[in-house]
Amino acid sequence: MFPKVELNVDTGFSTEMMDLLVDGQIDVAIVRGDYNWSDGKYLLSEENVCIIANEPIDVKKLPQMPMINRKEPKVLLKYKTSPYNPFEQSVEYWWNQRFIEPPIVTMQVDSYETCKEMVKKGLGYAIIPSVFLKQTDDLYNAPLIFKNGQEMKRRTWMYYREESMSLATVAEFVRYMKNS
């Protein structure tokens, strides 16, 4: 639509993108997680968070079962911005609503795909966003539901600087993303 406009796209961890946005190095950031951002924002999508296992499980027995946990890479510790409600804190809150004892974490892995593969091998259960599941995975899954009946969600946001909306390219990109 705009052949003379050049778009510069950077990718990285959501925390890295938020740091760039906060520092004014970029005008728009698309991130996963709920960050403390008081300027322009638009919810792009949300997905359920679920328990996966290679066979049906009784949620009440989770404290006695091995858990495969996805841990944030250590590289994220260098960033200034942290999510307001990170995935791990939500899972911990859900867990603490139900159980007194901590989970039995037998593996810490760095990706949801690795979690899924370990679960397929019968090495335990995992808690992952549903976007990582495919029907061909043939895994038992159940959404995490808080005590108030609300399902746990992981959100993808577009955050932007309202002052940058005076730039036609930024305004058009934001409009396009909102209408996609």
Rank of each mutant, 00 (worst) to 15 (best):
K4W: 11
A171P: 03
E47V: 08
D27Q: 14
V5S: 11
E47Y: 08
Y42K: 13
V28K: 01
V59M: 13
E163G: 05
Y84C: 10
D39S: 10
T156R: 14
R70W: 06
D23L: 10
K120W: 00
Y112E: 09
E172Y: 12
S166V: 09
Y160N: 06
M165A: 07
D10A: 10
I128A: 05
M107Q: 15
V49I: 15
D39A: 01
G149K: 10
L62K: 02
I100R: 11
D58M: 05
V9N: 07
T136L: 07
G24M: 02
Q108Y: 10
N36H: 14
E72V: 08
A171M: 14
F173I: 12
S166Q: 13
K178C: 10
I57N: 02
S82F: 07
R175V: 03
T106K: 14
I127L: 01
G40F: 02
E46C: 11
N36S: 14
K147C: 03
Y79G: 02
P56E: 07
P86F: 09
R32P: 00
I51R: 11
L43E: 14
L76G: 00
S90L: 13
M67Y: 08
K178V: 07
Y112V: 00
I26V: 15
S14K: 03
S45C: 13
P102N: 07
E16H: 14
A168D: 13
V109T: 05
P102I: 07
Q25N: 14
L20C: 04
F87N: 04
F173W: 07
V28H: 02
E101L: 11
E101Q: 09
V75Y: 10
L167F: 09
P83T: 05
S164F: 01
K61N: 12
N69F: 14
